[in-house]
Design a protein around this nucleic acid. Structure first.
Length: 219
DNA sequence: AACGGTCGCAACCGCGAACCT
DNA sequence: AAGGTTCGCGGTTGCGACCGT
């Protein structure tokens, strides 16, 4: 990693020893939610100060946009959303905020994390398997001995995709946190239940979606 | 039951763009 | 036009949860 030493902050006040970092507490969340409910979003640095939060404006903005906003959808990425993500990523690359605009309620951070943890991993796996497969194919042309290897490679891709895709993920900590938040009811109602009924989930695997990904990538 | 490795997500950071004075 | 401030984006990290041994 080539990050520079963190000497000067990107925000004006994070050198201030009183500036808090790290995970947000429920109290901080409530303060931010209530402040925005009463005053609306504004200049984040002033908002942070006015709300009495010992956070940078940047941190408040991130927390609000990615987590506290009432229209944030949490829980599973649906198969439709996953396809859309893959399609849009094939068009625009890592323009996460642009992609997020086409997925209502999803944040760029969530999509970025999803891409990196789920999709990118399998692209790499598939690529390595493909290259192995290609090498085997080339070798097969020379020695005609590698039919089994090719089969093994392709089946390996499928297996790893299926095996390592617990698509129905949600964060238990997020659930507890928001459930606790709901107790305080800063908003009249929670319009988006955090935990979805597991029985209603659509289970799918990368096996199901991978062909579409390859089509989108022109493979 | 304990431990180590892996995974997923929230949050941080630096930087460039946009906006303001 | 220039300088300062704030915003927004994409990349990266830290850490808790989970899983296998």
């Amino acid at each position: 990693m080539d990050k520079k030493p963190y000497n000067s902050s990107s925000s004006s006040s994070s050198q201030d020893p009183e500036v808090r970092k790290g995970p947000w507490t429920m109290e901080e969340d409530l303060i931010l939610i209530n402040y925005i409910a009463n005053h609306g979003e504004g200049v984040w640095n002033s908002l942070a100060k006015a709300a009495g939060l010992k956070r940078t404006g940047k941190s408040c903005r991130l927390r609000w946009l990615n987590y506290l906003r009432p229209d944030v959808r949490r829980g599973n990425i649906t198969p439709e959303e996953q396809l859309l993500i893959m399609e849009l990523h094939s068009k625009w690359g890592n323009r996460w905020s642009k992609i997020a605009k086409h997925l209502p309620g999803r944040t760029d951070n969530e999509i970025k994390n999803y891409w990196r943890t789920r999709i990118q991993k399998h692209i790499k796996q598939a690529e390595s398997s493909c290259s192995q497969s290609q090498q085997h194919q080339q070798h097969a042309q020379l020695s005609s001995e590698t039919a089994d290897h090719q089969q093994a490679s392709s089946s390996h891709v499928s297996n790893t995709m299926a095996d390592s895709q617990p698509m129905d993920t949600y964060s238990p900590s997020s659930f507890n946190h928001q459930a606790a938040l709901a107790d305080h009811q800063p908003f009249p109602t929670n319009p988006f239940p955090t935990v979805l009924d597991q029985s209603s989930f659509n289970y799918w695997s990368m096996d199901d979606l991978w062909p579409n990904m390859q089509i989108l990538n022109g493979d």
